[in-house]
Nucleic acid binder design. Structure first.
Lengths: 142, 142
DNA sequence: TCTCAATTTGTAACGATTACAAATTGATAT
DNA sequence: ATATCAATTTGTAATCGTTACAAATTGAGA
């Protein structure tokens, strides 16, 4: 009794067109927080008629319906994620890769936001990832 | 024995030109996390020759030298802040205003980032600010 | 006053995103 | 099947924040 992507989209009030199913599948299976351009380039061979505008439109629908989120960790272009559960993002200054990381949800104790309705949270860390940090240390030790 | 903005810039290895002093003063006194356009428009009357490129260049220098930070809470344009101390930002979906909020620095306990060198943190919350949230409830109660 | 590097400026280019209208698709009724 | 009609997709052009770049200006030191 597996739930198809089509069913999943339907359950979120999204008509499961061919393009939408393909885009959601790609986003869900991707770990790399792809940009619109990455999604478009990846699916273009399979869907030759695909338009970049469709990718933009579709992601907007996903976000409106709450099954994806935009990540503005990069100043230049927006990245997307089908993982809605609260988690942080780390971006490496050197290799520019974006990592997920788990974290306790400790948002309740922000006194300053009494009366505010917090609907979304984004936690961005920046620095050197384990890999780049390690390589840097090796160089310093020489 | 007050420290002037010029001295402050000098102490951070930044030559205090007229434009840089003015831009830093504006940013430091501003609570609204201004965009490049806001900064430029605000200072243009005082500095008629000011170029928007200078604003971009200057902010880049400030960030490189560690006396300002870029805030990508807005997808469209980057905002800037001269407050370096760790704090969160809340953006209202309705009035689009960006609020600061204080928070405990509880970053040490992210096990997943063992080996990573965390150099910068950004915490973005989104939702309805106290003001907009309150107005919405009034409407609903009618 | 001269020199030279740093800074500032204006213009043009770039690139991600959006607006918009035409084309296509797909469900429903006939 | 076919017609209808709204939703979706598509391609093009426009928008706008940002950057590249070269010329002009500034300012400190000789």
């Amino acid at each position: 009794m597996t739930v198809t992507v089509g069913d999943f989209l339907k359950s979120h009030d999204i008509k499961p067109s061919y393009q939408r199913v393909k885009i959601y599948e790609f986003l869900k299976n991707s770990k790399e927080h792809p940009t619109v351009d990455v999604i478009y380039s990846a699916l273009s061979p399979d869907i030759p008629t695909l338009s970049k505008t469709t990718v933009y439109n579709t992601l907007k629908v996903f976000i409106d319906k709450g099954i994806a989120m935009a990540i503005t960790i990069d100043e230049r272009e927006v990245r997307f994620d089908a993982e809605i559960r609260m988690h942080g993002h780390f971006k490496c200054y050197k290799c520019h890769q974006v990592y997920d990381f788990e974290m306790a949800d400790q948002t309740a104790d922000v006194d300053a936001l009494e009366g505010f309705d917090i609907m979304e949270r984004q936690l961005f860390y920046y620095g050197l990832c384990e890999h780049c940090n390690h390589k840097l240390k090796e160089v310093e030790e020489q």
